[in-house]
């Protein structure tokens, strides 16, 4: 199977600017603060598991990590070239120009 990798490359780690690292650090700080906030007030829980400190932090962390892994595996399985359903498929056609209004801004 052939895949056009050229444009995926722009998402590669080395192509992301230095801002990305700083953003992640900032985000991690926010997360830490929010995690600690859990100890600062009283919860009124319905589900016992909610009373666990930082449940709403750990739960998405774990499940999202798992999801990313599952998604990567499934992507490898379900991915097909664009022309898979060709020729009578919209994926192989460009959007008709008369329905668009392409204008380039010069910066």
């Amino acid at each position: 199977m052939e895949h056009d990798q050229t444009d995926a490359r722009k998402e590669a780690p080395e192509n992301q600017g230095p801002g990305a690292s700083r953003m992640i650090v900032g985000l991690a700080l926010v997360c830490a603060v929010l995690f600690l906030a859990d100890f600062a007030y009283e919860k009124h829980v319905y589900v016992p598991v909610e009373s666990m400190p930082g449940f709403y932090a750990i739960f998405p962390l774990v499940t999202c990590l798992a999801l990313v892994i599952v998604a990567r595996v499934l992507q490898a399985v379900l991915r097909r070239p664009v022309g898979y359903y060709a020729p009578k498929d919209v994926e192989t056609e460009a959007y008709p120009e008369d329905g668009l209004n392409r204008e380039r801004a010069d910066v």
């Binding site: 895949h3 056009d4 444009d7 990313v68 992507q75 991915r79 359903y85």
Partner: peptide, 9 residues
């Protein structure tokens, strides 16, 4: 993270 590639799923 799963990459955005020119492909269909």
């Amino acid at each position: 993270y799963p990459k955005s590639e020119r492909s269909i799923v």
